[in-house]
Amino acid sequence: MTVLDIKDLHVSVKTDDETSGEKEILRGVTLTIRSGETHAIMGPNGSGKSTLAYSIAGHPKYKITSGSVTLDGQDVLTMTVDQRARAGLFLAMQYPVEVPGVSVANFLRTAKTAIDGEAPKLRTWVKDVNTALDQLNLDPSFAQRSVNEGFSGGEKKRHEIAQLELLNPRVAVLDETDSGLDIDALKIVAEGVNRFRRQEDKGVLLITHYTRILRYIEPDFVHVFVAGRIADEGGPELAEQLEAEGYDKYVKAAAAAAVG
């Protein structure tokens, strides 16, 4: 049983504004993800969804001002970025970063070795990589390309999910993995996520702007994220309601609260 526990998380980002210098993005987020659960976080642009994802992963741009994040009781916020990954957290990024001259094969092997604490056995590893790539409809020659360099938008996202399957974390945070994907690519990516979560003891935090991906990855819980807070929570039916009504009423309520 794995539990990722986020309590009253406040996060600021550094800005160029000289007077304040910092802008608060997350204003008290509380969320518990248990293994076996898939949580969807939905919200309009600028609501802080990605900030939540990057704060959990430990991106240096974000400053945690208060609150806590624990994984099975361990304090995540005091861990370095790589310690968090080795503790069992994984972030599929919206904009994966190019690393020129480093092949996908080298990158995957180095990451797997770091996560497991020992190098994977060569024979099974090559097979695992080829299977993971094949399931995501990526050619074996993909392994020889430089990480994310010259990848199409779809290839980048499929590569993220290939990593998810190969590194096999305990809790996966997927940041707008559906954005920019056509329907075929979306299905391939969703199948990968579903393979991951069908395993024992896996939690998923799925961040998305659109309900489309939720047709392929059915969430157990839906959280509506507005202005750095969770504004509403429910089951999958909440996603359908958002599909029909949009975020308008939440945005207006948040604006009114800010004025009040």
């Binding site: 430990g58 370095t80 790589d82 972030l91 690393v99 001259g101 480093v102 080298n106 990158f107 180095t110």
Partner: peptide, 30 residues
């Protein structure tokens, strides 16, 4: 060193030293 590159590699469990080694290796590899 590009902070975003290092963050990406480290978010996959790769230590800071190893991430720098990889980026430098890649820098010269082509």
């Amino acid at each position: 060193f590009d902070d975003e590159q290092l963050f990406y590699l480290r978010s996959r469990g790769i230590s800071d030293d190893e991430a720098r080694r990889l980026v430098l290796h890649g820098f010269f590899e082509d």
